[in-house]
Write a protein that binds this DNA or RNA. Structure first.
Lengths: 110, 110
DNA sequence: TTTTTAGATTGCAATATTACGATAAATGTT
DNA sequence: AACATTTATCGTAATATTGCAATCTAAAAA
């Protein structure tokens, strides 16, 4: 088929999957890291930073935005993109939770 | 094209992307969560737990294993799968780092 | 040894993703 | 107004992913 069966899973599971999927591409990881590095948010030069054409970068930004990982504000001619902290916190909490539960459990069977 | 240009990005970026991509599917999130819930690691009944056919689950397990998120041991006839803590820790650290850097920065431009 | 059980692999169809050239839309500059 | 700049969108080609039926392998049980 090729279509993900999102109906069969919980909203939380789908939410985490959506966030993780958005980060699941090196270009989008690079974009996130670039947004971290740059002080000002006017980030039209992501294209210059990445080895990808402008439409491709625009598409990646769109996916990050759809997933809720970044926010974008129109600022005159350019656009100001920046990371949405809430999404990062969700991921941090999720993996933090798993990590602590695992150490409690001492899952050393493998 | 359709092929990800991994060559142009750093190893770290590709590593994070690989891990995130593996979690970027609700079925694989559900598998991870099931592995957490179950005490014993003999987890052949993941198939019964998920609304997916056996070959599909097997494929998802393979991807999780390739990405380094889970480990699998042959245990007689069945197989013992469990989460690889190191991978989870990597993700936790990564997002934790971003989170703390963001709060330091007070990125409130958007 | 035959049969069952657990899991992987193969092959295939449907859909999604990635990437980019060309083009469009919208604002800024001259 | 004419042009430049910035970003988005469209169209399209190449590749990847998802899902499953059918089949295969290997160990366990009978």
């Amino acid at each position: 088929m090729g279509a993900t069966k999102t109906d069969h899973f919980t909203d939380k599971q789908n939410a985490i999957a959506t966030l993780a999927k958005a980060i699941g591409h090196p270009a989008r990881v690079a974009i996130i890291e670039y947004l971290m590095k740059v002080d000002t948010c006017i980030c039209g030069d992501i294209v210059n930073e990445l080895p990808l054409a402008q439409p491709t970068v625009s598409q990646h930004l769109k996916e990050l935005k759809n997933a809720g990982l970044i926010k974008g504000n129109i600022e005159g001619n350019a656009i100001c993109y920046c990371i949405d902290e809430k999404a990062i916190e969700k991921l941090q909490n999720y993996f933090g939770n798993i990590s602590t539960k695992l150490t409690k459990k001492k899952n050393d069977c493998c």
